[in-house]
Amino acid sequence: MKLNLKIWRQKNSAVTGRLVDYQLDDVSPDSSFLEMLDLLNEQLVSEGEEPVAFDHDCREGICGTCSLNINGIPHGPQKATTTCQLHMRHFEDGETIVIEPFRAKPFPVISDLIIDRSAFEGITQAGGFITARTGSAPDGNSIAVRKNIAEKAMDAASCIGCGACVAACKNASAMLYVGAKVSHLNLLPQGAAEKDRRVLSMVWQMDRAGFGNCTNYGECSAVCPKEIPLDVIAKMNRDYAVATVKNIFTQAM
């Protein structure tokens, strides 16, 4: 395959970047999107140019390290697929592909296509955990969890924290991510004890980091490689309202 690439090049966060045109002549349709970028980088290095910086790790679609806005869609056109699992056969021969970093104020560009997603770590540190030491894994079924609750919690827990939801949201809102983390822990008996404190702190940290507000577009869930449902946002909204009301009453007493 022949490809025309328009890739965001930005040396560091201090300078402004721009789209640069590249051409690749011999790309296998069976290669992955990241392998295609590897090929480009080999070509750039052999020409003595600086290779394109991009994030990647497991290349199995489970770590959440890869990103990229491909032709305007986070993780590209294939539904429920991370960039590393996206294959070139989903593109046309001779197609022009625009590749940009995920964009949001809390996700500053470090270099080219690499962004700093530590704003997510901050939110998780604010409440995305269970305080008590639980020791090693308990025996199966020692804590009974209803099947439908376990399913919902597992669906929420499948979030890999890649940030595609923020990248796709027209408002750069992180509510699908925070909703997933809140729902995952608040649904389970191990996490339920701290559910009020958790949702209040995580939402507070999310706001402080400068993410936008959800206007129920649904773009986040549509591009999520793990297909996290919008349900988790409704759950977070519900838990936050309940926690706030409880908070107001306990402080008044």
Partner: peptide
């Protein structure tokens, strides 16, 4: 607040799901 959350716009932006009424 939403505008401030994305000061740098995308060069190419697609819409996958959002309805006209929502936008």
């Amino acid at each position: 607040e939403n505008r401030l959350a994305r000061p740098d716009r995308y060069e190419k932006e697609a819409t996958v799901e959002a309805t006209i009424s929502s936008r």
